[in-house]
Write a protein that binds this DNA or RNA. Structure first.
Length: 219
DNA sequence: GGCCAGGACACCA
DNA sequence: TGGTGTCATGGC
């Protein structure tokens, strides 16, 4: 079985750098991380554009904005009522407790993660996205694609349970480098969307034991 | 018209 | 702890 680092290099060689996370500012990255929950990025971009057109694409401005205005902007992203609550609460907590988001990234990384997880609507995946892509901190984002690929390719077995458990197992074999960890997650998403989802039984995948694993029906 | 997406939460046993 | 329903728009 190839090492995780080999897998990373294979994916990077095949797909090239994914340049995640898209966004011009740290605020935009964090806002996008919340909006992308269970939604396609295409829909998130519409919501981000709506916010931008109303000059609300910053944490400080969202913290002061009327709820109805944010709701209207977020509609294209789905679950917009919840996301409005999450986003306003997140922004207000940043402003009132930290002043600005950059302060979060100066904290001890695990404390910063805990702080984020204490906020309503910020789960482990969103927190790690904010820390890795917004804060340039070495956290690997674990998502459904990662779990599926990991089980197919044997990095993970069916006993691996919690998010943190999976994250620890995978990060142990990867450099503690936010660039690598961020790129790895982006590549897994890219690969899963382009190959695994469109051709779940394909024979042409360049990674042995990925799509054509012939294993139990994990997909 | 049904299913799913770059999740998280509430509720239940 | 683990499983299930809910949120909600847009693309395929």
């Amino acid at each position: 079985m190839s090492s995780l680092l080999n897998i990373y290099n294979m994916l990077l060689n095949y797909w090239g750098p994914q340049n995640w996370w898209p966004g011009e500012t740290i605020d935009e990255i964090c806002i996008g991380a919340i909006l992308t929950q269970n939604t396609t990025w295409n829909n998130v971009e519409r919501a981000l554009q709506n916010l931008k057109s109303k000059h609300l694409l910053s944490i400080s401005s969202i913290a002061l904005a009327p709820e109805e205005t944010i709701e209207e902007c977020l509609k294209p992203a789905g679950t917009y009522r919840r996301k409005t609550q999450y986003l306003i609460n997140f922004s207000q907590k940043i402003v009132s407790q930290l002043g600005k988001i950059e302060k979060l990234f100066l904290m001890e990384p695990n404390k910063a993660r805990k702080w984020l997880l204490g906020l309503k609507g910020i789960g482990p995946e969103t927190a790690d996205s904010i820390l890795c892509y917004g804060g340039n901190l070495p956290f690997l984002v674990i998502d459904a694609y990662t779990l599926r690929l990991g089980k197919r390719m044997g990095w993970l077995n069916s006993k691996t349970k919690s998010y943190e458990n999976v994250q620890e197992i995978l990060q142990r074999e990867l450099p503690k480098d936010p660039q690598v960890l961020g790129e790895f997650h982006a590549l897994i998403v890219k690969h899963s969307k382009e190959i695994c989802r469109k051709r779940p039984r394909c024979n042409s995948c360049f990674m042995k034991d990925c799509c054509n694993a012939g294993k139990q029906n994990i997909y």
